[in-house]
Amino acid sequence: MTAGRQSFAGKAAVAGVGMTELSRDSGRSVLELALEASRAAITDAGLGPQDVDAVLCYHMNDSTPAAYLASALHLQDPVWTNEFYSGGTQCASILGDAAMLIESGTASSVLVYRALNGRSGKRMGQTALRIGAGAEEQFSLPYGMLGPVHLFALAAQRWMHETGADESDLAAVVRHSRDHASRNPRAIFRKPMAREEYFGLPYVATPLRRADCCLESDGAVALLVTRTDIADAARPGSPRIRAAVRGGGPGASAMDRAPDVSRLFSSSLAAPLYERAGMSPADVDLAMVYDAYSFVVPVQLEDFGLVPPGESGAFLRAGAADFDGRLPVNPHGGLLSEGYVHGLNNIAEAVRQLRGDAVANQVRDPSVALCTGFGGSLGSAAILERV
């Protein structure tokens, strides 16, 4: 199943980026965080609140509603608002939703945001017994499936068994992430990690150690997506949204019904993404990969054709994924080290890198960025292109 396939070449651009401090305890309401990031994105685009006529967000009942934010920003009516109930699966494809509003003439400038107190407020990874949606969890909970980390630890184990990958491949992902984050002033974790330190960490769920799991963070990120003529006038150099896809198939998200419990969304979405973009893996020179867990990075790199099968671990260890390597991957440190705003901070960094104004680890002359959104065997992907 692959849904939501669309090409938007030349029709919409990401003109503005805004972001709050990422922390473990913001001491602020989610609305305050959303307002700060949104105002920064609008200003960064060279526009004002009067220019915004649509607001989109995604959340898991842990954020402020889009209509509330529109009201607090004093946007001029009528304003199109919509919310998607989801986490990281939406972070790439919500760019496509914004582009569709622009392409249809419904809006000219769309504010996209994700805001949460993901550490000091409502936290993920906690499962409760209930009836209705999600009721199947009551049957897996007694066997130790306490949240996403246990589910994806099983997927990681199977992936390692099938491919011959081992924990040194996971260590390579984590050490790569920490090294990039060490030069990023926004990052929560800015200390490089030695190999010995990694292997000395306790397991959360075998084979995933604490450092193999993304951060829980407080913070907000906002993007302003506009018509390309507006972007060219107000913020020249704004990256275009080339294509976006959303969907997936059987795999890690529903292990009781999947023929391959380690399969991720990327195996389903790679082909339609390149088809819609009119591109191939050879065109990608920057990969912003959703790194909720270390093992999903090599899986996605191989599924999207960026690294030959079985070679991703060696690719990372050789420095080919460094910000000055052959194919830079998450030069800001990603969700494992910078912080976790359900992937939208990865998209924000893609925009900065394509504009050439990253605060650290600026990639040399990037032109095409692959951005992904992970949710197990469901997810999304988008391609951003420099003008």
Score class of each variant (00 low, 15 high):
residue 198 Y to S: 03
residue 173 V to Y: 04
residue 182 S to H: 03
residue 209 R to Q: 00
residue 233 A to C: 11
residue 320 A to S: 14
residue 224 L to H: 00
residue 225 V to Y: 05
residue 203 Y to G: 06
residue 278 G to Y: 04
residue 381 A to W: 08
residue 115 A to R: 03
residue 278 G to D: 06
residue 236 P to I: 11
residue 339 G to K: 01
residue 114 R to W: 01
residue 99 A to E: 09
residue 49 P to N: 09
residue 205 A to R: 03
residue 276 R to L: 15
residue 258 A to Y: 11
residue 47 L to I: 06
residue 88 G to A: 01
residue 190 R to M: 06
residue 104 S to I: 09
residue 373 G to W: 05
residue 173 V to D: 03
residue 175 R to K: 00
residue 64 T to Y: 07
residue 16 G to D: 09
residue 64 T to K: 02
residue 53 D to Q: 08
residue 152 F to M: 06
residue 102 I to F: 10
residue 335 L to M: 15
residue 290 Y to D: 10
residue 359 V to G: 07
residue 157 Q to A: 10
residue 256 D to E: 14
residue 189 F to W: 15
residue 46 G to D: 07
residue 137 E to A: 11
residue 1 M to N: 13
residue 190 R to Y: 05
residue 91 C to D: 14
residue 229 D to R: 06
residue 40 A to R: 11
residue 218 D to L: 09
residue 349 E to S: 08
residue 92 A to L: 09
residue 104 S to D: 14
residue 377 S to R: 11
residue 245 V to W: 07
residue 372 T to C: 11
residue 270 A to L: 08
residue 387 V to I: 10
residue 320 A to P: 00
residue 234 A to M: 11
residue 376 G to L: 14
residue 37 A to D: 01
residue 382 A to Y: 04
residue 46 G to S: 04
residue 143 Y to P: 13
residue 334 G to S: 04
residue 77 D to H: 07
residue 303 D to P: 03
residue 32 E to Y: 01
residue 350 A to L: 10
residue 337 S to N: 03
residue 207 P to I: 06
residue 308 P to L: 11
residue 316 L to V: 08
residue 71 S to P: 03
residue 84 F to G: 07
residue 11 K to R: 15
residue 246 R to T: 14
residue 22 L to D: 03
residue 298 P to H: 09
residue 70 A to N: 03
residue 252 A to F: 10
residue 30 V to A: 04
residue 350 A to S: 14
residue 167 E to R: 09
residue 158 R to V: 13
residue 37 A to H: 01
residue 340 Y to Q: 11
residue 331 P to Q: 07
residue 331 P to C: 04
residue 364 R to Y: 07
residue 24 R to Y: 10
residue 85 Y to A: 14
residue 257 R to M: 13
residue 239 P to I: 10
residue 153 A to N: 12
residue 275 E to C: 06
residue 87 G to T: 02
residue 348 A to L: 08
residue 89 T to P: 04
residue 110 V to A: 09
residue 175 R to I: 11
residue 302 E to Q: 12
residue 5 R to A: 13
residue 123 R to N: 08
residue 83 E to D: 11
residue 193 M to W: 04
residue 288 M to L: 15
residue 37 A to S: 07
residue 252 A to T: 15
residue 2 T to M: 13
residue 331 P to N: 07
residue 129 L to N: 13
residue 346 N to L: 15
residue 145 M to V: 12
residue 54 A to W: 04
residue 111 L to N: 00
residue 38 S to K: 02
residue 318 A to N: 08
residue 275 E to D: 15
residue 352 R to Y: 13
residue 197 E to W: 01
residue 44 D to L: 04
residue 3 A to G: 07
residue 224 L to W: 00
residue 209 R to Y: 02
residue 186 R to E: 14
residue 65 P to V: 04
residue 2 T to Q: 14
residue 122 K to N: 11
residue 283 D to N: 13
residue 67 A to P: 05
residue 308 P to V: 12
residue 262 S to C: 10
residue 318 A to M: 02
residue 94 I to M: 04
residue 285 D to G: 08
residue 57 C to V: 05
residue 82 N to A: 14
residue 61 N to W: 07
residue 33 L to P: 04
residue 383 I to E: 08
residue 140 S to D: 13
residue 280 S to D: 06
residue 14 V to M: 06
residue 274 Y to L: 02
residue 172 A to F: 00
residue 181 A to T: 07
residue 239 P to A: 07
residue 46 G to K: 06
residue 158 R to K: 15
residue 50 Q to W: 12
residue 18 G to P: 13
